[in-house]
C-alpha cells in the first residue's frame, strides 16, 4: 500500500511544479509584450537617427573623427556582454556566455587583452568567479534603462577609447529573431561604422549644417553608439522573455506527460492491489469451505 501513496504524492508534487511553470510562462509573456511596446516606441527615434547620421557621415572624410578611425594595432579590447538577471530560460544565458568566452580566448590567442563590462546577473556570476578583467557590472537594470543611464555609460566608454585605454569596443547580446530563435550577436561599437544610407537626390542633397558637419558629427557619434546600445537592451530583454516562455512551455508539457505516466502507474498499482486483495478473500473462502 505504501507504494500507492508514494505515487500519489509524486503526482501532486508534479502538479504543483506544473502550476509554477505555467504561471512563469504567462508572466514572461506579459513582460515580453511590455518590452516590445517600449521597443516599438523607440523605433522611430533610432530609425530617423541612423538615416540622418548616414547622411552626414557620407559627406565627411572618414578620418575626421577619432571614433571613426580604425586603429592599426589593437592591444586591448572591450566587450560589453548582455546576459539575463534570472535563469530558467533554457540555454539563453549559456549561449551568450559560451560565445563570449570563446571570443575572449580567440582574442587572447592573438595577443589582445580583453576587458569586460557585464550587464545582467548571470554573466557576472560566471565571469567574476574566473580570471577575467571586469571593469564594470550592472545588475537588475533591465526595464530601468533610460537614455540618461546609457549616456553615462557611453561617456565612460568613449573616454577610455579616446585615452587609448582600449582600441576597440564590441558588444554581445542576443538578437531576437523569432519567438523560437534568439541569436547571440556580436556588434562592433567603436570604431563606429556609420549606417549606409543611400542618398537620393529627392532628399534635397546638400544640407546647410549648423555647426559644420564635422562638428555635428562629433555630437552625433556618441549618440549613435547609445542608440545601438539601447537597441541591444531591448533585443536582449525581448529574447530573454521569449526564451523563458519557450522553456516554461516545454516544462509544462513535460509535467503533463509525467503526470500521465504516473497516473497510469498509479492505476496499475491500484488494480494490482485490488486483485491481490480479491485473491486473499477468495483463498480464505475456499479454505473455509474445505474446513
Amino acid at each position: 500500500m505504501a507504494k500507492l501513496k508514494d505515487i500519489q504524492r509524486k503526482i501532486s508534487a508534479v502538479k504543483k511544479t506544473m502550476q509554477i511553470t505555467r504561471a512563469m510562462n504567462m508572466v514572461a509573456a506579459a513582460k515580453l509584450r511590455k518590452v516590445q511596446a517600449r521597443a516599438e516606441s523607440f523605433a522611430p527615434y533610432s530609425q530617423k537617427f541612423s538615416e540622418v547620421l548616414g547622411n552626414i557621415a557620407s559627406r565627411v572624410e572618414p578620418d575626421i573623427h577619432p571614433l571613426l578611425v580604425k586603429r592599426e594595432e589593437i592591444k586591448r579590447s572591450l566587450l560589453i556582454l548582455f546576459t539575463a538577471d534570472r535563469g530558467l530560460c533554457g540555454s539563453f544565458n549559456t549561449n551568450l556566455i559560451n560565445r563570449a568566452e570563446k571570443w575572449i580566448r580567440d582574442q587572447e590567442e592573438k595577443g589582445i587583452k580583453c576587458d569586460l563590462i557585464l550587464i545582467g546577473k548571470k554573466g557576472r556570476d560566471y565571469f567574476s568567479k574566473r580570471e577575467f578583467n571586469i571593469i564594470e557590472n550592472y545588475v537588475n537594470i533591465y526595464g530601468k534603462v533610460d537614455i540618461k543611464f546609457i549616456n553615462q555609460l557611453i561617456d565612460k566608454i568613449v573616454e577610455s577609447y579616446l585615452m587609448e585605454e582600449v582600441d576597440e569596443v564590441n558588444m554581445l547580446f542576443s538578437r531576437f529573431v523569432s519567438m523560437l530563435k534568439q541569436e547571440p550577436t556580436m556588434v562592433k561599437l567603436i570604431p563606429v561604422e556609420p549606417p549606409n544610407v543611400e542618398i537620393t537626390e529627392s532628399k534635397g542633397g546638400e544640407y546647410i549644417c549648423e555647426p559644420r558637419p564635422e562638428e555635428l558629427l562629433v555630437q552625433l557619434l556618441p549618440k549613435h553608439i547609445s542608440v545601438q546600445i539601447m537597441n541591444a537592451f531591448f533585443q536582449n530583454e525581448t529574447s530573454e522573455h521569449a526564451a523563458r516562455m519557450t522553456a516554461m512551455d516545454n516544462a509544462t508539457t513535460n509535467c503533463a506527460e509525467l503526470i500521465q505516466d504516473l497516473t497510469l502507474l498509479y492505476n496499475k498499482a491500484r488494480q494490482a492491489a485490488i486483485t491481490a486483495e480479491l485473491m486473499d478473500i477468495v483463498g480464505g473462502a475456499e479454505a473455509l469451505k474445505k474446513a
Partner: peptide, 10 residues
Amino acid sequence: LEDHVAFLSG
C-alpha cells in the same frame, strides 16, 4: 517656414 532649404542643426 515652408520651403526651407535642407538644414541640419544641433
